[in-house]
Amino acid sequence: MRITCPHCGARDAQEFSYLGAADLQRPEGMAASEAAMATYVYQRDNPAGVHRELWYHAAGCHAWLVVTRDTRSHEITAVEVAKVRKAGATA
């Protein structure tokens, strides 16, 4: 597989390591519930189709990326930098 890192360009998948679902929100703060955290830690969809997932460009720029990939065909339709997703965050 080739993943096009927004910083480095098209690279072999072996330069990256995989984490999983990209759109989970960590329950932050002392008020967070154990149940919400358990969901965050353990509950995952396993879609046959389009999946937004985190990849770390370990052998490249060390950026965490959100890769939109079809799990059936490995077609990659988008790669974004994870860090700039949150509103107010600077690149």
């Binding site: 960590r26 770390y56 965490w64 949150k86």
Partner: peptide, 18 residues
């Protein structure tokens, strides 16, 4: 060492980029 670096980058870039 490598695993921790990756974890810290995750914490920074994905959890708390602010």
């Amino acid at each position: 060492a490598g695993k921790v670096m990756q974890h810290l980058e995750f914490c920074h870039q994905v959890l708390w980029p602010e």
